[in-house]
């Protein structure tokens, strides 16, 4: 399967990438390419111009700043998986993405900007109440993770913007994932994060976007035990497909969420 023809240009800096994006209405950023290239090979995506940001090493970093962790958008899954300092759920989720070959290439920014409801890292960022920093022609702006995922493969990013940085708080937490094959996407994934004294729960593959399980969080705040609070997930409406029916996903989400809550 060969993608449709496109023009290719390699950005030399973030500013250069922003400038290049603005030159073509049908331009897409290429980072690790492990979400975009498969789509292009199926011709589900046919961008006219690819702006390759894969070598912008200025965007590949993990730092601690003012008590938070800041992660460059081009940080690869393998680097997250190997990073000792970041919250455990991010490390765990990164280590469960596909396989090491994919993790050598795939980036956190690319995974999040792709807007896939099955994204493991996206669920973690939602649970962590992360801030996402985007740069466009007008400069930088910060988008809360809660406002970032707007629809199926849709995000709050403008076509002229590039995601540059992700900021997450210190947190305890865990990510649990059910999949039928070891390198697969999540049939259901559950990210649980305890930020300060609040417990946040987010789910992957349970809707059109990664979602926060607000009702579960409310029940926990009111003192419900995890095994009781997870019943709130009965009210979700996950999709059914060849891998799992909607009912089965609901069941998995409850079991995994209870286990994750009991673990932290």
């Amino acid at each position: 399967m060969i993608p449709a023809a496109f023009d290719y240009v390699r950005a030399t800096s973030v500013e250069d990438a922003v400038r290049l994006l603005a030159t073509n209405d049908d331009a897409k950023l290429l980072a690790g390419g492990h979400s975009l290239v498969p789509l292009m090979r199926l011709r589900l995506a046919r961008p006219a111009l690819l702006v390759d940001v894969g070598r912008l090493s200025e965007l590949a970093y993990i730092r601690e700043e003012d008590g938070r962790f800041v992660i460059g958008a081009l940080t690869r899954h393998a680097q997250l998986e190997d990073a000792q300092m970041i919250p455990a759920l991010l490390r765990e989720a990164a280590s469960m993405i596909a396989d090491r070959q994919v993790r050598h290439r795939g980036t956190i920014g690319g995974s999040v900007a792709h807007g896939d409801p099955a994204s493991d890292l996206a669920a973690c960022l939602l649970a962590l109440d992360a801030d996402l920093v985007a740069r466009g022609p007008e400069g930088d702006r910060t988008i809360a993770a809660r406002d970032f995922f707007t629809g199926l493969f849709e995000t709050a990013l403008l076509p002229t913007e590039i995601l540059t940085e992700i900021r997450v708080p210190r947190a305890r937490g865990t990510y649990l994932k059910f999949r039928t094959r070891s390198h697969d996407w999540a049939t259901v994934g559950v990210a649980v994060a305890r930020v300060d004294w609040t417990v946040n729960v987010a789910l992957s593959s349970m809707g059109l976007t990664p979602i926060r399980a607000v009702e579960v969080e409310d029940a926990l705040r009111e003192g419900a035990a995890p095994a009781v609070a997870v019943h709130e997930l009965e009210r979700t409406e996950p999709p059914g497909d060849a891998t799992a029916s909607s009912e089965y996903r609901k069941h998995l989400a409850q079991v995994l969420t209870r286990r994750a809550l009991e673990r932290i």
């Binding site: 290719y8 290429l30 390419g33 070959q101 994919v102 050598h104």
Partner: peptide, 18 residues
């Protein structure tokens, strides 16, 4: 699978220009 700068990658999911 091949190595690019020493790391394993799946060469069906990389453009040669990369």
């Amino acid at each position: 699978t091949v190595l690019v700068d020493g790391e394993s990658v799946k060469s069906c999911t990389l453009f040669a220009v990369q």
